[in-house]
Design a protein around this nucleic acid. Structure first.
Lengths: 340, 340
DNA sequence: ATGAAAGCGCTAACAC
DNA sequence: GTGTTAGCGCTTTCAT
């Protein structure tokens, strides 16, 4: 089943069928209707590959993420797809699994499929990727990497602002001994967040205590492990900030496991605001990274460049603080022992 | 940059380049190596669309799911992709968003992209889809719909077995007044689970009380709303079974909100075993649907048909019960009032 | 073992 | 407004 058969049945040329499908040139309503009928009747679906080959445009955008299993991403993917569909484009998603090798595969896939643009939303750093794509005239947008060019844009999330809000909030509740559980330092996002924590503390005149900064893995397990260590300290912190929500959720688990309560004994703050942060016990106070906005920006940035010929630029996205119930007045008891 | 340029540079014909890339015919090691070098040097990536068009095979499988935002799916997607990649195939994922219209779009997309097979893992029912695809010789695999044919397979999850285990477990803890919060009845999976609950209760000699069966939406909000209603009853249940984990998590939220405790006042059981069920407070006892097994089966079923020419068949997948801490001995007080 | 050339299904000039 | 036809970049006979 192909366009030629449709053309024959409708007694027109393949060009006309193509015109009706794409609306690329005026066709008399009469024949147009006849063609549509025929398409319908024959259950004809134009072959995308032939279309791409013929036109040179794939109408497809690539979205590279780290791991679809990380709750941060699904919503991002969904929003990106939704807005792409609104613009008549499709999306192919690829996971790097946090691995460099897989990143190469992802890139190859994008190149082979001739995407019209690529959003690289992984937090691993790959600045040189910009060249690979822009060299081929493919627009690209990064998250938190800072490289912009003729066809490459960059989205900067203001983690600093969000973390400042969190520290302020904790300070106002009387916390001074605040721990930070970071993500893996290979991740740009983890670095940025850690740095923001450090300078935020200093800005607030609070002590940045190196031993209160542990490294997690941006997953629950790392948060749990790090928190367990923090709880074993002689002078433990009264509040903990996790580099992401999963980390914070793991920390809450460890706190409960130790027989302590959140927030009465220890306050916990996360970062990201994934949906399930609403459903932890207690619900998690967290720094919200607006993923929908992020996705929208990423797509529109790409689309603007590939369609309008706009040039790449930097976009800023603000973070906010979502107050829920995992933070409270600083506990007097910062040394181990029964709570309160 | 195309295969012709590579051919010229390597002083061979395009056919030879193609042979080297695909290993479809013997090429002398000497020229093969020269071609590889050239490909490397020129950074040549073969155009997938041209490849598909020329060969008639896309090396791509489609995966249709309801909503990537539903935690049940990401892991499924990941496993499916991983095993596909192992077999040298790629995957395109499409979301229906639980909407019939979007399902049409998904199907169209698959058809237009000439996928070699489609896994339809949504729980909405679309039996006629089998025809659309098998009519075109495209293998297909369904989840819980029961239609099998020459090129269409079916995966049946034994929810019944899992739910029986859950009911048994609750019965052994002294529960007799067990509520069920179902999913939307348009979903096959919701129907199957509901039915399994009903017959499971009867099999155990427990009363199936219609008013204790409410309808949720397979998301937290529905679980919360339904649970709130259950809590307002004169004689409220001592245990609740949710049609999925999200529902159960929402229910737990409502119970806490009412100042009651899980499991001391009410026991809660979920279904699916999404990762975050480990991190609710208390951790959720749930019926585990092995998604990795499901994904593997789905892919291998498809692959077997499209490659080996095997015929479609039915596969069964067992569910199990994961005991965590949201279930406990039945509370004496089944009427409202202070707990215990 | 290698090359020449005919498609694959569509789009886009270019005619009329 | 509509038809003709030359590509698009690759695969795959069919020769040699």
């Amino acid at each position: 089943m192909n366009i030629l058969q449709v053309a024959k049945q409708a007694r027109v040329s393949t060009a006309t069928v193509s015109r009706v499908i794409n609306g690329t040139a005026p066709v008399s309503e009469k024949t147009a209707e006849r063609v549509r009928q025929t398409i319908q009747r024959l259950n004809f679906y134009p072959n995308t590959h032939a279309r791409t080959l013929g036109s040179g445009k794939s109408r497809m955008y690539g979205l590279i993420i780290s791991d679809i299993t990380n709750p941060f991403f699904p919503e991002l993917v969904k929003n990106f797809e939704d807005i792409a569909v609104e613009h008549g484009q499709e999306v192919i998603v690829a996971n790097t699994n946090y691995q460099l090798k897989r990143m190469e595969m992802c890139v190859r896939r994008m190149l082979e499929r001739k995407v019209d643009g690529v959003a690289i939303m992984t937090s691993e750093m790959e600045p040189h990727l910009a060249d690979v794509f822009s060299h081929r005239g493919i627009p690209i947008v990064f998250l938190d990497t800072g490289a912009i060019g003729a066809r490459s844009s960059n989205i900067e999330v203001d983690y600093g602002g969000g973390i400042d809000l969190a520290i302020e909030h904790l300070a106002s509740l009387g916390h001074t001994r605040i721990a930070f559980i970071s993500g893996p330092m290979e991740l740009k996002s983890a670095q940025v967040r850690h740095h923001a924590f450090r300078s935020g503390m200093q800005r607030k005149g609070l002590p940045y205590v190196a031993e209160l900064v542990l490294t997690g893995d941006h997953r629950t397990e790392g948060g749990r492990a790090a928190m367990t260590k923090l709880l074993q300290m002689k002078r433990r912190p009264t509040a903990v900030l996790g580099s992401n929500d999963l980390t914070a959720i793991g920390a809450i688990g460890a706190i409960h496991q130790a027989g302590l309560r959140v927030p009465q004994d220890i306050s916990v703050v996360g970062c990201d605001d994934i949906e399930l942060s609403n459903f932890t016990q207690p619900p998690l106070t967290t720094i919200r990274i607006p993923r929908n906005e992020l996705a929208t920006r990423a797509f529109t940035a790409l689309f603007a460049v590939s369609q309008g010929g706009e040039t790449g630029r930097t976009y800023r996205i603000d973070a906010s603080l979502v107050l829920r119930e995992s933070t409270g007045v600083a506990s007097r008891k910062s040394t181990p022992g029964k709570a309160e």
